[in-house]
């Protein structure tokens, strides 16, 4: 009996063949792939420039097959602004973690979003500092144990976690702002749709776009990968609701 082999799954052209350094159960790999697929499907790889953060994904440029800039901690939106203003014909995106974007880089992301800079930000929120070894982030959950909050985040001292998607969607300048998650395949599919839409809006030269992606960090959360997805669902989802907070197409439809 003759079988015909059909390719049903390949590595996206936007990803390189380098094996990532990410820990078992970390979702950076999934999110990288969703970004790469979006670039491929929209035909953007050859004019894409990514901006790497400081954090676990600092080496993202080793895993992608497109041009990359490496930013100081938190400054990726400023680099992206500088590059995109000079080369509006290019597709620019930043890939940032929660320490990078919501703590040290708060100023840069708020102002880039508010100016309506025409680039895309992929914001990976895993509620902790990964690369430096599990310290408390602005997004760490109340009571969550980290190496700098061993008794759990004390909201009397550290306040409550910052909801970046909500915060940025209070800005008036048109922007696409969505929160997604990748803790189940179904959620990953939805995340892909949001990421692809964000890039499509940039391709159409429409607006600043940001997709927050809830992510796991089993290593620094100190739990097994399977428990990590459950922890995310039980602890993060209620506090960080998924959804589209701002959508220029929806606004156009209702106005």
């Amino acid at each position: 009996m003759a079988y015909q082999a059909n390719t049903v799954f390949t590595r996206p052209a936007s990803l390189s063949e380098t094996i990532t350094h990410y820990c078992p159960g970390c979702t950076h790999g999934i999110i990288h792939r969703l970004v790469a697929e979006s670039l491929d499907e929209l035909g953007l790889r050859e004019r894409a420039v990514g901006v790497a953060p400081v954090g676990c994904s600092v080496l993202i440029y080793n895993y992608f097959n497109c041009d990359f800039l490496e930013a100081p901690h938190g400054r990726a939106p400023a680099l992206a602004t500088g590059f995109k203003r000079i080369r509006p014909d290019m597709i620019v995106f930043t890939y940032q973690g929660d320490g990078d974007l919501a703590s040290i880089g708060m100023g840069e992301i708020v102002h880039a979003a508010n100016r309506g800079e025409k680039f895309t930000t992929i914001f990976v929120n895993n509620a902790i500092y990964g690369m430096t070894g599990g310290q408390m982030a602005p997004t760490t959950m109340p009571g969550q144990r980290t190496t700098t909050s061993p008794a759990g985040r004390d909201v009397d001292l550290a306040g409550y976690p910052i909801r970046m998607a909500e915060l940025l969607s209070t800005l008036r300048t048109p922007a696409y702002v969505a929160r997604t998650s990748v803790h189940t395949p179904m959620h990953a599919v939805q995340a892909k749709q949001a990421i692809k839409k964000a890039f499509r809006l940039q391709k159409e030269n429409r607006c600043f776009s940001l997709v927050e992606v809830l992510s796991t960090c089993p290593t620094n959360w100190g739990i097994a990968p399977s428990d990590a997805t459950r922890w995310l669902a039980e602890n993060m989802l209620p506090y960080y609701p998924l959804g589209v907070f701002k959508d220029p197409e929806r606004e156009e439809a209702t106005s």
């Binding site: 800039l69 930013a71 100081p72 590059f83 203003r85 100023g107 102002h111």
Partner: peptide, 14 residues
Amino acid sequence: AESEVAVGNMLFGA
């Protein structure tokens, strides 16, 4: 820019 910190980094990207 919103600050000189951002200026320096915009230049870096630019």
